[in-house]
Amino acid sequence: MGSKMHEMSLAEGVLQVIEDSARSQSFSRVKTVWLEVGELAGVEVEAIRFCFDAVAKGTLADGARLEIVATEGRGQCLSCGKTVAIRLRYDPCPLCGGYPVEPVGGLEMRVKELEVE
């Protein structure tokens, strides 16, 4: 339940970004939203879809299509110094088994682009 509500706040964040952008870019309807979500961002993609549909009801993004672009999780191992691909934020280094692996990529939660009219 906690997790679902977390995504609800993030979905509201997405809508805020869209509403701000509607003001500066002068549009009144959003058809598609491209959302960049990093593998290490701790976001449940299905939950954010569900929540976005709910918060967008009655707004300029009502019924908008949500396209989620996943970005790869990358970290730098502080034991062996190599940059490695990681799927979970606190996994050990796949090369040397050491800790910690400092996340350096795949932490994004960003509204990338909108298709508007």
């Binding site: 970004v17 002068s26 939660m109 682009e113 508007v116």
Partner: peptide, 24 residues
């Protein structure tokens, strides 16, 4: 105002590149 200047309902792309937590 912006809408009037757009002249049509054709869709267009808007680059946003904004972090979701930016407002917070």
């Amino acid at each position: 105002h912006g809408h009037a200047h757009a002249h049509s309902h054709a869709s267009r792309m808007v680059q946003v590149e904004q972090d979701i937590l930016a407002k917070n």
